[in-house]
């Protein structure tokens, strides 16, 4: 996938997350069923959260070259503002 799409996907991530964690979606998991004795809703919240973390990790790997390092505290004057 090209980088532009990855950037857009990264921008989309919080909104996808917000959607997955808002009441109408959460209502779907408001059941009496349990998984290993735990109600479904908390399980859904943690599993979705973890899935988002994995996705974020995958996406961020593509973007590593586009960040700018600014390790050096004193840069030469002609380049100091491009940091």
């Amino acid at each position: 996938m090209d980088k532009g799409r990855i950037k857009d996907l990264t921008t989309l991530m919080p909104w996808v997350g917000l959607f997955l964690f808002t009441p109408p979606v959460l209502f779907l998991f408001r059941q009496d069923t349990t998984i290993f004795g735990v109600p479904v809703l908390p399980v859904y919240l943690f599993v979705t959260w973890f899935a988002l973390i994995l996705t974020s990790r995958k996406l961020s790997e593509y973007l590593v070259d586009d960040t700018v390092p600014f390790d050096t505290p004193h840069m030469p004057p002609n380049s100091s503002d491009e940091a």
Binding site: K7, T10, T11, L12, M13, P14, W15, G17, L18, F21, L45, W49, L52, I53, T55, S56, S60, L63
Partner: peptide, 13 residues
């Protein structure tokens, strides 16, 4: 905990 997670997922933005 989820609110800050969402912000960091969208760090690029």
């Amino acid at each position: 905990y989820i609110g800050p997670s969402l912000v960091f997922f969208g760090w690029w933005f």
